[in-house]
Nucleic acid binder design. Structure first.
Lengths: 124, 124
DNA sequence: TTGACGCATGCCTATATAGGAATGTAATGT
DNA sequence: ACATTACATTCCTATATAGGCATGCGTCAA
């Protein structure tokens, strides 16, 4: 099989760096396609295609205004991603604690101090 | 061009559902490949390949123990993802507030109440 | 009606999988 | 030394892009 479609879920959709840029750009306010093109320096068809993907997975909303289409980020659709990543928060905190504790233990024990590589190590 | 490599960054690596499952499974404790295969019900070569991708982007660490290799999730590598998604938190909170406020405004104004679709709307 | 404008879509190509099957390899048991 | 165990890698195929270019389409102005 090939990779899953970019429109299969938010995870696949945001894997593309340009789409993440678009989401960031459209988070604060809705914008017409032309402004996205100008702001991010991409080709118009390319932007339209990225917006299509983002729209298919609900990451952006669109409304028509005359002949332009205004897009804006639907932040709600990014929450699942944030929450999935958040389930690992306790683990990276543990890892940080372990590093910290080992460092403190080394100081208490007077183990080889990497801050002073010149210092002679007293041998047992 | 084709899509970026799955090993280009954490975003691309976690786009694959099975890789997310593996990360979740390996978050709490290190495990040999065989256990991952048994726990997730995947083919062994498939797991090895996913682990290879995860290892290339630093999402898992590995150490050898006899003839088995123990893998564990490196939660630190998931933080960038969590933080990127977190930058949208204020926006989804705003959106929720807007929905809430509109609902309250409708109640205050006595606007057409969708809870009672039978009720006659008094015409002007 | 005729253009111009603002986007969306279609077409084509090079590239990158993900899965299945088979094989390679290092370490361990006998 | 030899079989076995535990993984990793290779080969093959079908599929899905992402980007560049050309074109289609609805809306608005003259």
């Amino acid at each position: 099989m090939a990779r899953a479609s970019t429109t299969s879920d938010a995870f696949n959709a945001v894997a593309e760096p340009r789409r993440r840029e678009i989401l960031t750009y459209l988070a604060a306010a809705e914008r017409p396609v032309g402004e996205i093109v100008a702001a991010l320096g991409l080709e118009q068809p390319s932007v339209s295609k990225h917006l299509r993907v983002l729209r298919d997975v609900g990451l952006v909303r669109m409304r028509c205004q005359g002949r332009q289409k205004l897009y804006r980020t639907n932040a709600e659709a990014i929450r699942p991603l944030h929450e999935w990543a958040g389930t690992f928060e306790r683990y990276w905190q543990h890892q940080l604690n372990r590093v910290k504790q080992r460092a403190e233990a080394m100081v208490r024990q007077g183990s080889p101090d990497l801050s002073f590589p010149d210092r002679k190590i007293k041998e047992k």
